[in-house]
């Protein structure tokens, strides 16, 4: 606060300006208090929905979840109760895993180009800007892209098409977060390695990358968590199935977000229950990735010099 001076410790000298809070006009004091109150209120306005969502999902999904729910096949009618979402759990894991397998190496390599080779060259700056723009491309557009470039071309909805869409969504996020981490690696490490006679590629792979690996891993895990919850591309690129499909390249597949989406708009109680159960499963998966990312980032952060 502006004036925290205790009046007692301050002998009132004649003619000295009164600096205590009471000297402020009522209007200024009230405006200040009201505005600060509103700012704190804003935080609560954001916290309340989060609490309500988590509570709804926990209370309604918690009663549904069991080992059977996580492993059994999906009933072929929305009306039927019982069964589970096993195929969707499998689908989410293998589709997201495949997407990570494609996007992570490419994203890290792209980031290496930006930070180690391109730096401030026009091409590198163009790629940086375009990566930022690509981050903002709606997931439904990315789904349409894969739909028109892959699904219509081969006339087959497969898990791999979904993985491609998710990989496209993850790529710019991984590039930007990895570049951010590579920038934190002190230049002395690079110079020391080069002075020892290591070539640049070796320096990059054995010195720079290991130094930044915790930050990179944390960024990658956050990107994977985000991708696992993406729904729009999955819904129309991957197709539908009620039985587990371990093959990404043939046959339709399904994933948890798609199950939530399909079941949420049904009026039948069993379908809604499956939606809540899937939502809880998905949130747990996403949360596990997010928490691991945080722990890695905090535990092994690069000590800034």
């Amino acid at each position: 606060m502006t004036t925290t001076v205790d009046p007692v410790t301050r002998p009132p000298a004649a003619g000295a300006p009164n600096l205590t809070r009471s000297a402020l006009s009522v209007r200024r004091r009230v405006t200040n208090q009201v505005a600060l109150g509103l700012i704190v209120l804003a935080l609560f306005v954001a916290v309340i929905p989060l609490g309500l969502v988590v509570w709804s999902v926990l209370s309604r999904g918690g009663s549904v979840i069991s080992w059977e729910f996580l492993t059994e096949d999906i009933p072929n009618s929305f009306r039927r109760s019982g069964g589970g979402v096993g195929p969707a759990v499998i689908g989410t894991l293998i589709i997201t895993g495949m997407a990570a397998l494609m996007a992570v190496p490419l994203g890290v390599l792209g980031a290496i180009y930006l930070n180690e080779y391109g730096k401030q060259r026009p091409l590198a700056r163009l790629i940086r800007t375009m990566a930022d723009i690509m981050t903002g491309v709606p997931s439904v557009v990315m789904g349409l892209f894969i739909y028109s470039a892959w699904v219509l071309l081969f006339d087959a909805r497969t898990g791999f098409a979904g993985a491609l869409a998710l990989a496209c969504l993850m790529l710019p996020v991984i590039i930007r977060s990895t570049e951010e981490m590579l920038r934190l690696v002190p230049d002395e490490l690079r110079q020391a390695s080069l002075a020892l006679g290591a070539r640049k590629w070796r320096t990059t792979l054995t010195v720079v990358l290991p130094a930044a690996i915790s930050g990179i891993t944390s960024g990658v895990l956050l990107a994977i968590a985000r991708a696992a919850g993406e729904t729009a591309p999955i819904v129309f690129v991957v197709g539908v199935t009620t039985a587990p499909n371990w093959n990404l390249f043939s046959g339709e597949n399904t994933a948890l977000p798609a199950q939530i989406f399909r079941n949420a708009s049904q009026v039948f109680e069993p379908a809604q229950e499956r939606a809540w159960g899937s939502a809880l499963t998905l949130i747990v998966i996403v949360l596990v990735f997010t928490i691991i990312a945080r722990i890695i980032a905090n535990r092994f952060a690069i000590k800034e010099r």
Partner: peptide, 8 residues
């Protein structure tokens, strides 16, 4: 971090 489909 909450997936948008859960908000939906």
């Amino acid at each position: 971090a909450v997936p948008s489909v859960v908000f939906g």
